[in-house]
Amino acid sequence: MDILQFEFMQNAIAAGLLTAVICGIMGSLVVVNRIVFLSGGIAHAAYGGIGLAFYFKWPVMLGTMGFSLAASMLMAAVTLKARHRADTIIGVIWALGMAFGIIMVDLTPGYNVDLMSYLFGSILTVPRTDLLIMAGMGVFITGLTAVYYKEILAVSYDEEFARIRGVPVTRIYFGLIAMLGLTVVMVIQVVGLIMVIALMTIPPFIMEKYAKSLAGMMVGAAILGAVFTICGLWLSYRFDLTSGAAIIMVAGMGFLASLLLEQLTSTTRNKRLKKGQTDGTGTGTAPTSLSDAREG
């Protein structure tokens, strides 16, 4: 494996693995709480922070983080207060943030940032310092999730029950969205805002069908994300492709394969059920399973 000799490749792999872990945890929470659209909104609105940071010559990471945190808190408040139009308002913030960022970059004298590198990221040019920050974030997010796991689980699964039991639902929700805002910025720097969404949704979505617990879903999604990232990186190296896009393509293939697999298993299960009924052998299990299927 000669590609591992290059330092940029070692950094890219480390960044990919860290991203996979962070996205595995936060992505599972995003999927089960059905806030994919909201995370897309944060990711795109964060571009406003990038523009702002360029214009005022702030450190990009800090500027983007502040902007993204503000945007995510706004979206969290909107989803709680104006639930029925939340998606519309998030869509508006999404577009506004991005337009604002582009205009700020336009207004920045003599500066031309490549928008593409923020859309698809530049995992092959991740500096060591970013890696350290990502590692810190990974520890922070994993720790916070572990400490508040019970509460987060209750809020995600049955908000009403959590509220009755005195779990500070609103505080947990805002905390979750804030964590999401930080994650998105952190990961955008490396893999771009399009891949953030792909890595946060595809592995958790696949794992959700097989996991027995939210924690299991997080671990599985992290592993799956790591596999996708490594495969994508290898393909991008081998065939000279854009790394971010290659990783998304691999994840997309995984997504399609999981759908196909699900289709196949459900067809064979139905066939077996039918056979059991006509044989009269499956009388014990078939009716209950059928009623299950009907109710589900």
Partner: peptide, 12 residues
């Protein structure tokens, strides 16, 4: 609610 949620009876 949340029928697809990865959670077992025991955990609920």
């Amino acid at each position: 609610i949340n029928e697809k949620f990865p959670i077992t009876a025991l955990d609920v």
